[in-house]
Write a protein that binds this DNA or RNA. Sequence first.
RNA 1: GCGAAGUUGGUGAAGUGGUUAACACGCCGGAUUGUGGCUCCGGUAUGCAUGGGUUCGAUCCCCAUACUUCGCC
Length: 373
Amino acid sequence: MKVKYNLLHEEKNTNARRGTLETNYGTYDTPMFMPVGTQATVKTLSPEELKDVNSGIILANTYHLWLRPGEDIVDHAGGLHKFMNWNGPILTDSGGYQVFSLANPKDITEEGVYFKNHLNGDRLFLTPEKSIEIQNKLDSDIAMSFDECPPASASHEYLKQSVERTLRWAKRGKDVHKNERQSLFGIIQGGAHEDLRKFSATETVKLDFDGYSIGGVANDNESKEDMYKAIEYSTPYIPKDKVRYLMGVGEPRDIIEGVIRGVDIFDCVLPTRLARHGHAFTKNGKINLKNAKYKEDFTPIDEACDCYACKHYTKAYIKHLINSEETFGARLLSIHNIRFLIKMTEDIRVAIENDTLLDYRKQFLKEYYNEDV
RNA sequence: GCGAAGUUGGUGAAGUGGUUAACACGCCGGAUUGUGGCUCCGGUAUGCAUGGGUUCGAUCCCCAUACUUCGCC
């Protein structure tokens, strides 16, 4: 089936929405956070651990699985769900982000994008059609259109022609997408420019996708202001009965600000990457467990947290694991960090239902960033 | 007891008679937003065993002392 978004409640003081998303693998509450599992695994975590922290959809990556093990192997395994033993929904990114992170501007052509295989140096060519074909074989529940994710600092002229090309690519991808079990999302680009976002959003919506994402954000050290503008300039043009996904965003503050501007879904590598580097989200801000002051801190990462790591382990122990490069440390912190963001979305949903989202933000910013708003 | 070699930061070590004593690890911080997972960026010896001497100037040359390692009795 195609995903179906049900709008349950619109928050009175903001553009936030409370809803549900029906998928092939159950119905999930929104706003929601998707953990990232690029290579068909959320790094260090088992599916059971993902379920334990109340994960809904997870994200996997077309580019990486295309290179290794190859979409045919996943297909022969019976699809991504079977291959990785995940019986929840999966969204696949299209490889569009790798246009930003791996390809040179000169390698982006109307037909597609040339990449240098980061594993063996081979020259690769990815097109909108090829990306959809791969995602079909991977058998994800939601496929993303192949877009160009330009740096936020790109000029208006560049972004304009990029947005237009991404639209043509979206159409080409949609034309070859036949999988009735798999939804297809369009991606809105346009940097922090109101005219470009409006154009990109309205034209993408005309193509009639199953959901819409806002891309090109959080990729170039752009200002928070620009990031929030990019969202504000996009969401008004997305039909209310379609789900809205803000790609790549994951800092606690940005999740709140995204929700306030009408976003339903987020994904981000931050919780797992920070975990591998020894950092933990806590209600009073991000902490670095490598810091010497935690050497003899025999309290949990976050007293308020209900995750497995906080229920059973101390900062001192996890610090020791991280310092010793034991993978169990990264695993415990990944569990905690993902749970932290998911718990945030749970609290946010309650605040939306109660029309108290601005109060929630005020309190969160005070506790986490020590800021008064 | 005799002989030889050596003594540079938390560790392994490079180095020169004359501005800020290399590098690595460790340690102490920071970064990280659709993931090219063992990454990136900073900081970290007011000091080259100790005491004398030579010299305009010594971590680098000379002497003594202490300590370490090896060999011999």
